[in-house]
């Protein structure tokens, strides 16, 4: 903010706070600064508008007895509070309350409300320990104990590993058993397709054709019907019988 702006606004503030002592708002309208500063012009215009609005409002007129009634009410509430506490104390007339007890109690309550939680806990612990004067407690025991407790609480608040949770283990076990069950029945579902003999393998090849690949690869040799080929592909026992029969001279012509 420029220096001229600050000067103008200070004059404006003075005019608003002390209208009789300061420069009137009307004369500020002709201030030389406004010729070059649009912001201050806008600010003056808004204040003039507010001034106009306020002047147009009728002056507030309070009820004539309002002030008396409010003050009376306040005095009554205060007396009632004091009377209640006195009556309470007068009831226990036999009780010899230490002097200034009420004051001390109220002061203690106010003090407790004002202190933070940790500090209050520490104060309570110190007060407790002060009673056992015979016990010599190490220095800053309260702080150390509270620090340890805070650490324990922090550890317990950390999230347990996922797999340490029993629910996750149950879910994992159930998933593995379900997968095993699916695998166990899957070949049984595939088997009928294979035994039907018309199954197409995933790559489109006829499974039955692959079952006979030996026949197909040896086709030329198998389709030979010369005598040597026919003899050589006889079952082995038939070949042995031919040789045996030949030795014994019993083969027919």
């Amino acid at each position: 903010m420029k220096h001229d702006c600050r000067s103008f606004r200070a004059a404006l503030e003075s005019a608003l706070e002390s209208p009789r002592e300061g420069e009137p708002l009307e004369s500020l309208s002709w201030n030389e600064h406004l010729l070059g500063c649009a912001e201050c012009r806008a600010l003056l215009e808004s204040e003039e508008a507010l001034e106009t609005l306020l002047e147009s409002l009728p002056a507030p007129k309070l009820p004539p007895r309002l002030a008396r009634r409010v003050l009376a009410r306040l005095r009554t509430a205060e007396h009632a509070r004091e009377d209640a506490l006195d009556r309470l104390l007068e009831r226990a007339a036999q009780t010899q309350a230490p002097p200034g007890l009420s004051r001390r109690v109220l002061a203690g309550l106010e003090s407790a409300r004002a202190q933070p939680a940790e500090g209050a806990a520490e104060a309570r612990l110190d007060a407790l320990l002060e009673r056992a004067r015979a016990v010599e407690t190490p220095g800053h025991l309260a702080q150390r104990v509270l620090a340890h407790v805070a650490e324990e609480r922090a550890l317990s608040r950390k999230r347990r590993p996922v797999f340490a949770r029993a629910s996750v283990r149950f879910a994992l076990a159930a998933g593995l058993l379900a997968a095993f069950g699916l695998w166990a029945i899957w070949p049984a579902r595939e088997e009928p397709a294979r035994t039907r003999g018309l199954a197409q393998l995933p790559d489109g090849v006829d499974a039955r054709m692959l079952e006979h690949i030996d026949v197909l690869e040896q086709w030329e040799l198998l389709r030979r019907n010369d005598l040597d080929s026919l003899l050589s592909t006889l079952p082995r026992t038939d070949q042995l019988l031919l040789e045996m029969g030949s030795e014994e001279g019993v083969l027919g012509g």
Partner: peptide
């Protein structure tokens, strides 16, 4: 495949030799 064919030829020739000539 050629070894198999060779084996069938050897075996076939051996068995043909034990058959009666009329049958052959």
């Amino acid at each position: 495949s050629e070894l198999a064919e060779n084996e069938t030829a050897r075996l076939g020739a051996r068995l043909r030799a034990v058959l009666p000539p009329e049958a052959v």
